[in-house]
Computed example of a mutant assay.
Amino acid sequence: MVGGTWNPAGDGVTGAFIEALNKAMFTARMVPYPADYGSKLSYTASVAEGKRALLAAIDRSPNPVVLAGYSQGAAVAGDLAAEIGRGEHPGREVVACALIADPRRPAGRYLGDIDPGGHGVVGEREIDGIPTYWAAAPGDPITALPAGNPLRTIADLSAFFSFSGADAALTWGQQMLHTATRNQLQRWWSPANWRQWGGAIAYARGYLFDGRHTDDYVRCGHARALAQALNLDVAEGRI
């Protein structure tokens, strides 16, 4: 299990997920990593460090592994699962992936009967070859942001940012120029998305004040439901 930003040891969301796992089937371990977003490391660098730590944890495990993560930790676990699914890390026995509030959740991938809408604020990432479960709370801008929401620009511009010094600022500028010239910025402003251009304030409020990215995963049962889905599929031999 990989925790969210600034919570590498876990928090209430990861705790709710772990508590609901069947202890006869799973032994949960938090995987430490920087979990930073610009104070010392950029988000992109933190995710890269997390992937290295998670890969090392897989190698230390004597058992088949389920990768799990929340928020930035979901980006770590999901990105690594996608790489393993593509055959980039042979010999690792990863049997499933469980992601809570994934910043790269593809549209239409969700647990339960209610589509939270949108997709991850960082973009979309499919995971092939490994059964993957996504928990996404409606209104959470990190994982269920409409394609035409201007908050996507914040994710694009802050991915490489760090307060650690002048060299980090220069790297941020270079990466932004590289991203822009390679046409990799998310085109939320596309005319095809014009109906979704509004709503940035509502989604920002949901993130900052209403607990859409935090409390909802506990109080609405999303984290617990994700664990229960894993419990059921393991018990019935689907994974």
Rank of each mutant, 00 (worst) to 15 (best):
Val13Ile: 01
Asn149Ile: 00
Thr27Leu: 14
Ser158Tyr: 01
Gly78Lys: 03
Pro106Arg: 03
Ala204Trp: 14
Arg52Val: 11
Thr27Tyr: 13
Pro146Val: 11
Pro8Ser: 03
Asn149Arg: 00
Gly91Gln: 05
His213Gln: 13
Leu21Ser: 04
Ser61Cys: 12
Ala96Thr: 01
Ala180Ile: 09
Leu226Ile: 08
Asp59Met: 15
Pro90Cys: 13
Pro32Thr: 13
Leu80His: 10
Ala81Phe: 03
Leu232Val: 13
Leu111Tyr: 13
Ala20His: 01
Ala56Gln: 07
Thr181Asp: 03
Gln72Tyr: 12
Leu177Val: 15
Ala75Phe: 00
His213Phe: 03
Arg105His: 02
Val47His: 02
Pro90Glu: 14
Gly3His: 00
Ala227Met: 02
Gln184Phe: 08
Ala225Tyr: 04
Ala45Arg: 15
Glu88Asp: 15
Phe160Leu: 12
Ala223Pro: 09
Ile154Trp: 11
Glu126Ala: 15
Gly3Pro: 02
Met25Glu: 02
Gly221His: 00
Thr5Cys: 12
Lys51Gln: 15
Pro90Val: 15
Gly221Thr: 07
Arg182Glu: 09
Trp197Ala: 05
Pro146Leu: 10
Leu208Gln: 08
Asn183His: 11
Ala35Tyr: 00
His119Thr: 01
Arg105Trp: 03
Tyr133His: 09
Met25Ala: 08
Ala225Cys: 04
Ala81Met: 05
Ser46Met: 04
Val234Ala: 12
Pro8Phe: 02
Leu80Tyr: 11
Thr14Arg: 02
Ala45Leu: 11
Asp140Glu: 05
Gly237His: 14
Ser46Glu: 07
Ile18Arg: 09
Tyr207Glu: 00
Ile58Arg: 14
Ala159Asp: 07
Gln174Ile: 15
Leu54Gly: 04
Gly211Pro: 09
Ala53His: 11
Ala229Ser: 13
Gly165Trp: 06
Ala68Phe: 04
Ala75Asp: 04
Gly50Ser: 04
Phe160Glu: 14
Cys220Ala: 08
Thr132Trp: 11
Ala107Asn: 07
Arg92Lys: 15
Gly10Trp: 01
Asp233Ala: 12
Thr5Ala: 03
Pro150Gly: 02
Ala147Arg: 06
Val65Gly: 07
Gly85Ser: 12
Pro106Phe: 05
Ala81Glu: 05
Gly129Trp: 02
Asp115Asn: 15
Arg219Ala: 03
Leu99Ser: 08
Leu151His: 08
Asp233Arg: 15
Arg238Glu: 14
Asp115Ala: 11
Ala202His: 08
Ala107Met: 04
Arg52Ser: 10
Ala227Ile: 01
Gly139Thr: 04
Pro138His: 13
Gly173Leu: 15
Thr181Ser: 06
Ser164Gln: 07
Lys40Gln: 12
Tyr33Trp: 12
Ile18Met: 14
Phe160Cys: 10
Glu83Ser: 14
Val234Tyr: 07
Ala74Gln: 06
Ile142Ala: 05
Ala135Tyr: 00
Pro64Thr: 14
Tyr110Asp: 03
Gly78Ser: 10
Pro141Ile: 09
Ile114Glu: 01
Asp167Asn: 11
Leu111Val: 13
Ile127Pro: 03
Thr179Asn: 13
Asn7Val: 02
Gly73Trp: 02
Met30Phe: 10
His119Arg: 01
Ala200Cys: 10
Gly4Ile: 10
Val2Met: 09
Ser158Glu: 04
